[in-house]
Amino acid sequence: MQERLLEIQGLHLNYKVYEGYLKVLNGVEFNIDKGEKVGLIGESGCGKTTTMRSIMRTLPSNAVITAGKILFKGKDILTASMDEVQSLRRNNISMIFQDPTAALNPVFKIEEIFSDIIRFSVRTSSKKLTKDEIKLKAVEALKAAALPDPERILQNYPIQLSGGMRQRVCIAMALISSNDLLIADEPGTNLDVTIEDQILRLLGNLVNERGTSIILISHALGAVKGLVDRVYVMYAGNMVEVAKTDDLFSDPLHPYTSNLFKTVPKLTGGGIPEAIKGRIPDYFDPPKGCRFCPRCDHAMPICEKETPTFKDMGDKHEVACFLYS
């Protein structure tokens, strides 16, 4: 049995705004084992990023967690002290963002950005690094991210690098401090398709080498498929389905998942079916039962009243839908 690294149990989260509460996360269930690669897919506004920000405890101040636990190595992150969270961010979990340009402070050279991170990440291990050691570490990290000529890149400002190189720098940064878990939030979405391909391949190689767990968030379904072992599908603040990657793509069970796959334009042509009617629910007043119910072709009376929970369909394939209960 694999060691469980992170587990989210029944996470409910609201955003307080002037008009009332936006009920965004509605009992999110999620887990990832040590060394596992997990994908998370869903449309924009479904709560992917909010979920990840609750793991990092970087939620905006108007977010209110009403129920649930986030266990990292068995310890609840939500009740941890700020010091513990800081240490977690420094040593255990790191994140790569969608927009590498916004993630790098434009007024600092890459070297300055790196030396700060390196100094903070070793602060807990009590020994102080010399300037040369820091530089050596930075060069190593850049080399690992397949960046040519790391010495020169260290002397550059972020603006002097191309989009693909900036994202590689971000990956290198994330890998310095991350030992256990890497959260990649749409790492290739802002980049061109050939560059995205390179970045995803690099990420795959790096986590394989180091045995790091990775959560890859994307709305590009194909990007997830090539890299991860297991995929979660999220809709309107709920996980609706999880399965091993091949099982999910060949045999999606939840009506949302199968419809989502249908709407993706295929390279084989033949038009794009308009499989999902309506739009994502209003979080002020979400549907009472299953949140997909108003858009679902298979809706039953029970769907309007109760929220379905994950049901194991065998071989780690779980689905939250009354069609299968």
């Binding site: 398709v193 391909d197 090539g226 793509f249 060949s250 295929k266 390279l267």
Partner: peptide, 14 residues
């Protein structure tokens, strides 16, 4: 060729 082979796809036929 490079572009087409970089496209992430989701089905076996593709």
């Amino acid at each position: 060729k490079m572009l087409i082979s970089s496209i992430p796809v989701i089905t076996k036929e593709e």
